[in-house]
């Protein structure tokens, strides 16, 4: 494993920051740096799925990845980074919780997705309009509260009404979501895990 990838997997924040700066000074292509980081984040995700890592480790990895992006942002804009797909992401109306959504966002970005994050308590109209403007491949709807089930149903109904349901795949995520809610609301995928959610998004792109 590359040293940088390894340092990310081991969540060595300061080491990672220094290594990324060194790589930039050495003139390493930014795409290459991002790829090494991406691999590290992927392994962190796998460790989470296997039960070796837990949510604090995911949050730490997300923080590390954000600090890497901050360092390379000036050069990133010029580099050609390949995005695998675009996600419009939101915590649905009447729910203000975003820990899970933000962890998902970090991992989705680390896995090459372009994520357009609308924040929390987002009304269906805003989501529909963003679909029309941003033309994402995937819409990610997050919630923590059971009382937000209605908002998930309602948002997907509005997406259908607007005639854009066929243009996107919809994944719902959060601690209370289930296959029942997926079927009832008409989503394409459901997950209670941020790491699994990113894998599901990759699969949705193939469908």
């Amino acid at each position: 494993m590359e040293e940088l990838t390894k340092a990310i997997v081991e969540l060595e924040n300061e080491k990672v920051t220094k290594m990324v700066k060194d790589e930039l000074v050495k003139g390493t292509a930014v795409e290459e740096i991002v790829e090494k980081c991406r691999q590290g984040m992927e392994i962190v995700g796998q460790k989470f799925s296997k039960g070796e890592y837990f949510l604090p480790e995911l949050i730490m990895a997300g923080e590390i990845f954000n600090s890497i992006i901050e360092i390379i942002r000036p050069v990133l804009a010029e580099a050609k980074t390949n995005t695998v797909g675009k996600i419009v992401l939101a915590t649905v109306q009447n729910d203000i919780h975003d820990i899970g959504k933000n962890v998902f966002k970090g991992f989705a970005e680390a896995n090459g997705f372009d994520v357009h994050d609308l924040g929390v308590d987002v009304d269906p109209e805003t989501i529909v309009n963003t679909i029309k403007n941003e033309k994402p491949d995937i819409v990610g709807l997050s919630c923590l509260l059971t009382s937000a089930f209605d908002s998930i149903e309602n948002t997907i109904a509005k997406i259908k009404e607007a005639g854009v349901r066929d243009q996107v795949k919809i994944i719902i995520g959060g601690a209370p979501v289930s296959e029942e809610l997926k079927d009832w609301s008409g989503a394409d995928a459901a997950t209670r895990s941020a790491a699994e959610g990113v894998q599901l998004c990759k699969e949705l792109l193939k469908k």
Partner: peptide
């Protein structure tokens, strides 16, 4: 808390702000 009926978002439940 975001209080239901007071703080916009929380119409159906009081919500815990982090």
């Amino acid at each position: 808390f975001a209080l239901a009926g007071k703080d916009g978002a929380a119409q159906k439940m009081h919500q815990w702000k982090q």
